[in-house]
Design a protein around this nucleic acid. Sequence first.
DNA 1: GTTTAAATTAAACGTTTGTTTAATTTATTT
DNA 2: AAATAAATTAAACAAACGTTTAATTTAAAC
Lengths: 207, 207
Amino acid sequence: MTEFNEKQLEILQVAEQLFAEDGFDGTSVRDIAKKANVNIAMISYYFGSKEKMLEALVLNRISDMRLQLESLYHENIPPFAKIDKMVELYITRINKNRCIYQIIHFEFSTKKRELNFESFTEMKQSNLETFKNIIKEGQDSGEFQKDINVALLPPIIMGTYFQFHMNKPLYMKIFDLKTEEEYNNYILTTLTQHIQKTIKALLVYEN
Amino acid sequence: MTEFNEKQLEILQVAEQLFAEDGFDGTSVRDIAKKANVNIAMISYYFGSKEKMLEALVLNRISDMRLQLESLYHENIPPFAKIDKMVELYITRINKNRCIYQIIHFEFSTKKRELNFESFTEMKQSNLETFKNIIKEGQDSGEFQKDINVALLPPIIMGTYFQFHMNKPLYMKIFDLKTEEEYNNYILTTLTQHIQKTIKALLVYEN
DNA sequence: GTTTAAATTAAACGTTTGTTTAATTTATTT
DNA sequence: AAATAAATTAAACAAACGTTTAATTTAAAC
């Protein structure tokens, strides 16, 4: 993979923000160029095209989640603690790269765009295997139930987060979160705990 | 609210599909007009503009969820059964109006579109009140735990569904769902049960 | 049957889109 | 210092965009 210079990285950063705000189609290369203080032609000059820039952006941002998850798997801590840490890893990571996840899920999921989506699906499947291993530890120790559909656990974690975030105005109102900081703090504390609790409850629930 | 004739409804139907497939910005009025077999000018003629058409579409589709939820609340069945029915109501409804929900959540939430969003937020807050009442029944009977953050339950239900659906290719592969019908059936059976189980597990979980 | 309103059309409108060109400036190499 | 490559620019490009116009057809009312 090619490395990017400072100017290219700044363009990507601006693009990331604008894409997440206004969508891929809703953002013009002129908007990006203007905000990044570069000439319009630089997008084509550097990345080839607008679409290829998006491709470069995604690949540049999403790359090391697998390693983090693998690392967690090999930690020597009790199953429940590991679940907590895993959920926390998911949330902090998604929350940090909120923009790019939004782009990936809400722009790319439509089948019209054909990028190298396979690598992304592969990553997910790989992560799912590690996920299964982590659950299996708790099952082997007798702490978790046996009949767990592990593949449906990530949607709970990520889905709950996204659904919360997509209704940001509503929840800021309900929970009286006045600033961006308070909102973010709520995600990293209460919402994270809520999701941790949900997953753990499901893992021990007897039908 | 004005009623629509057949041609207008067909235009809305086509628009709904295309918006969900390619996004609002990704769909041109020419695409809509072509697929709906009407002249381009008809969109402006009927709805005023492309944006107003989207507004009409949303308001036309999402209108009676509140009534359904209220009706369920007044049903005289055990708390756990009511939870199951409520989750089922959510899923079947979202699944049926999948397109419009996708548009609402992935187009409206992030982007700076100025529509009458308030009515939608109000609807959610109203639904949340009914939701709280349903949970309270189970708490009063001693079957549910007391410390439930009810406002964070809908994100679990809807989020899990959407996250599943956004990774449709992945899950069709994992669960060996070969046809659209099998996929839909999986949602209405296994996935629904999974979410029901999750909510119920959370409601009885002791920290 | 005539008149009036609604529906429908093709064409054109002015913008904005992503991309390219060709000229110029800046940086690097020889 | 001269030559070469890279970076940057303003301008132009054709295509696509949402919307409007003005003319025509269809339907309804009288």
